[in-house]
Design a protein around this nucleic acid. Sequence first.
DNA 1: CTGAAAGCGCTAACAA
DNA 2: TTGTTAGCGCTTTCAG
Lengths: 364, 364
Amino acid sequence: MSTIHDVARHAGVSASTVSNVLNGRAGQMRPETLERVRAAIAELKYGPSTVARQLKTGHSSFIGLLIPSIANPMFGYIACEIERHALQHGYRVLICNAYRDRDKEAAFFQDLLAHGVRSAIVVSSLEDERHLELAAERGMTVVSYDRRAVPGDRPGVDHVTVDSVLAARMATRHLIEHGHRHLAFVTVSGVTMSRKDKIQGFWQAVDEAGLRATSRVVDAGPVHQYGDSAIGEIGASCARQLSGEPDRPTGIVALNDLMALGVMAGLHESGLRVPQDVSVIGMDGLFLSAMSNPGLSTIEFPVTAMAAALVDRVIGGATPGDQPAETVFTDVRLIERESVAAPRGARRKSAASPRGAAAKSNTK
Amino acid sequence: MSTIHDVARHAGVSASTVSNVLNGRAGQMRPETLERVRAAIAELKYGPSTVARQLKTGHSSFIGLLIPSIANPMFGYIACEIERHALQHGYRVLICNAYRDRDKEAAFFQDLLAHGVRSAIVVSSLEDERHLELAAERGMTVVSYDRRAVPGDRPGVDHVTVDSVLAARMATRHLIEHGHRHLAFVTVSGVTMSRKDKIQGFWQAVDEAGLRATSRVVDAGPVHQYGDSAIGEIGASCARQLSGEPDRPTGIVALNDLMALGVMAGLHESGLRVPQDVSVIGMDGLFLSAMSNPGLSTIEFPVTAMAAALVDRVIGGATPGDQPAETVFTDVRLIERESVAAPRGARRKSAASPRGAAAKSNTK
DNA sequence: CTGAAAGCGCTAACAA
DNA sequence: TTGTTAGCGCTTTCAG
């Protein structure tokens, strides 16, 4: 690879002149000089070294992306959307599969810092974000996804998230409107905030319908395996177990679509039919859910818009002030497919389904 | 962030001494000095700048990974396996979603070069690899996945691949052994070599059974949409169309699991049951295929081993000699689930299913 | 056993 | 309008 000096020599100018045309400061330049420089660049197939440039300027062209695992199709999708947006703004995305492990996250942050990366997006954030605050203290702009700001958070970490409480509430209500009175919320155990919010949304809907006595949250245990393929597996074994119980639920809300897919598989294995025997609804809007049998009803999240918001925020730099900024997307949408029906011998309570409000971005 | 000089000053030594302890050249060092340096490093929370280091040494710690799209769960999985292995060898992976677009691939290569990245893995390689050779000429070590070396290839690009011909043949044979005589291979159109190989494997098995007259390859068209969610969709619409035809196939081999999942969805929509009316088999061994209804029979690829081979090769540097090196994995494995059964009114021909041979790595 | 000096490729004042 | 100079943070001979 040739350097800026090779080009300079070739064109009979100085390195700074070449640097100027490279950086669009050729306004006042003699057209002839500009032409010579251009020719030299082309001839030598020269491209500037971003490494040298970064050492000099201190600006990195990378955005770090910490994400549980892109083997999980939902996260793969989110990562793609983020990359697409970042590229449009001249940024590259450095994906780090952190497997929801605080130590791994911390190690990646260390590494990003060493690489001079000054912006990071953290997807599916752990509830405890002290290690993020540490990175923020060292000058990183970090924006988290799937975590709200809570009292006690120190500034330095901004938040972009979907209204998980609302999403879970909509999902649960959908079941209730179909006449279900025995509900279960099936989840993996974990320490992300969105999980807690979804459980809360579930209970809200349950209480609104006065169904607390006949409903419950089923924790299927932790995701051990690296990668997220296990989530479906866990959903399946949980469903198998559930199906053997005497007062099994007729309607199941799953933590996310992947888990819902697993639940359906487990139900099916146990000889139970969806939706005739049990109704299932997920959350995410994974494209795969459209292909399942039966098609999985779900709550779709505005992923593209959220990815854009994430990138814009992280590029924009840290929010001034001592309150962390927060953008909550509320335009989640119910997608009705075939996995939800009235339970045996019940009548549908209402035909109307709740719709999400328009996007509401409240930076407070 | 503090620099090596801050540490040096803090410890009362010179920068080169600090550099020495950083790089494990502290063997002959006075223990006391070593200790002082260590203390200073800890106190200042110092970490070396990989950017400066790379500028000096010319060695990058990145491996570029060009891949169609990590929104495709198969590629997300492969990417994770590659990252895992690379990390163990001290390398970071820089994922580039290239959407099977030659221009995008070329642009990413340009960018990798600018970043001083000297190793790249290209997954699901386009048949025409001239743009890769260009990168190789510029000093990159590039290893491709899913493409064999062919006469006319110039050296500089090594290959790691699974035996796609064998995989497709096994899949097809599985159908034939169940008594199917009307076969179809369903594929998206495209320009990857593995696709051609799979079609070839399909025809091999078909010809072995003398079923050419009643079998065909169905090209469902190109994948337009960015991301690979469309693959399933295409499979579905193709299946819908197929199901309306008078002499529709009773057994379908799909290009990959994602497509197979789509095919099953389309069949189901058209009122056809799998496997009672039509049998379907995929290829990949995607974890999601275990959760479909019915469970998708498939040919599993040794992804972990292949990811390791890919990383080892690319780290090892270009193979000397003028023949491109090639590693072909042949240990593919049939996973029987519920999507394949005997066609209506036929008897199963044989109970034995073909098994893959042990891994054979022939570097020639 | 440790330090001084040079330079990786680039940019940004400042001079000319 | 263009060139000179200095230096980003690190490693690496080569002296001391």
